[in-house]
Design a protein around this nucleic acid. Sequence first.
DNA 1: CACGAACCGTACCGTACGGTACTCATTTGA
DNA 2: TCAAATGAGTACCGTACGGTACGGTTCGTG
Lengths: 216, 216
Amino acid sequence: MLSEAGQSSEFSPRQNAVLEQALRLLVDGGEKALTTSGVARAANCSKESLYKWFGDRDGLLSAMITYQASKVRTFERNGERLTAASLHDHLVVFARDLLEVLAGDVSLALNRLAIGQSNRDGSKLGKLLLERGRRQIDRRASGLIDAGKRAGLLRFLDADEAYHTLYGLIVSDLHVRMLLGEPGLKDTSRQAERAVTAFLKLYGTEKVLAEAAATV
Amino acid sequence: MLSEAGQSSEFSPRQNAVLEQALRLLVDGGEKALTTSGVARAANCSKESLYKWFGDRDGLLSAMITYQASKVRTFERNGERLTAASLHDHLVVFARDLLEVLAGDVSLALNRLAIGQSNRDGSKLGKLLLERGRRQIDRRASGLIDAGKRAGLLRFLDADEAYHTLYGLIVSDLHVRMLLGEPGLKDTSRQAERAVTAFLKLYGTEKVLAEAAATV
DNA sequence: CACGAACCGTACCGTACGGTACTCATTTGA
DNA sequence: TCAAATGAGTACCGTACGGTACGGTTCGTG
């Protein structure tokens, strides 16, 4: 179930509680509200402990990203035989999950944080966020797409290219708009459905197209 | 040519020079490097003048966005008759321009700035950035898509939906990745070509598809 | 019980920022 | 020619942050 070597003991329970409070402060008030004094006060710990555990403020930020990523786990593809209908459904579920994750409070706050620091620290946080937070979702989608190809339902040369196309169809500019503060999208289900329909039209084999035509 | 009521006298030449220096500081060192003292020093003006001209620091940031947006002007569609080939070419040029704009130093810096402030000031800068910076490119693409429909080359129900699909196909997650500090994309031309090909496969009429099949 | 480690709460320090006040040189205009 | 206005340069103030040091408290262990 857990695809990564996800040792949940990266931090102690006490430290996890502190990181949880830090994330809450970040979500509520942005980076400016995330002061070391504020975290210590909110988490009922001392600043000295913060610096012992996390080194400095940047270490705290990194730990927050690592901790949050460790909470978001995704399921591996089980080995079931894919049909056109089940591929479509799995893709729609993936699309909805992706939009839901990207629109999440904590995700948006951490992305804003990493983006804000990206030209200050050489994008250290950005790299961390992409590695820890994105790999799960990437692997899930790639697995799904590969399975679709093996089942003769999808046709493509470059799996990575196909995945990026799927991602773009699902997300479009919604992520950046939400990062800029625009209120979240209203109808994620419709958006997910549209994206998957388009993706299947681009990469589906005759098998998929026939079934789609039959059901529509 | 200028579609907006773009009075270039929004700021005085002296103020424009100051804003130029402020943008340079922002691009070089991120938001943290953009201090009022630093701007005053770099632009050889006094802090008192800064506050007289722009009110406060937020006013300076807004002015920077407005100024930068006023520099990026785009051409309106001329009334030429679209063919399948010219539509394709115009779309590719648009895609390349879009990627080039999004990957620009100043654009990335301003987007990072607005995103960093988005949960502090009620996304005032984010709104400004979307309105001033995005409307031009939106209008250009919408005009192109509408012209394609009028010429019988594209088929869609919702023009906005078609445009967002095009945007997602072109940009995918590149914008966010660049905002997070990842080095820019290596091959914008190929990316643009792929996006337009996919877009035409999704929204093109038989007329376009026939020509595409003939040329490929 | 005694000892030490971990840790909380707080006080403290140096620094850097946003914003204001003041002085002095230059320009403007009648 | 002279005074009013403009703006550069600088000094200054209050505040707030990151980071450190210290006293007091809890808790596990021999």
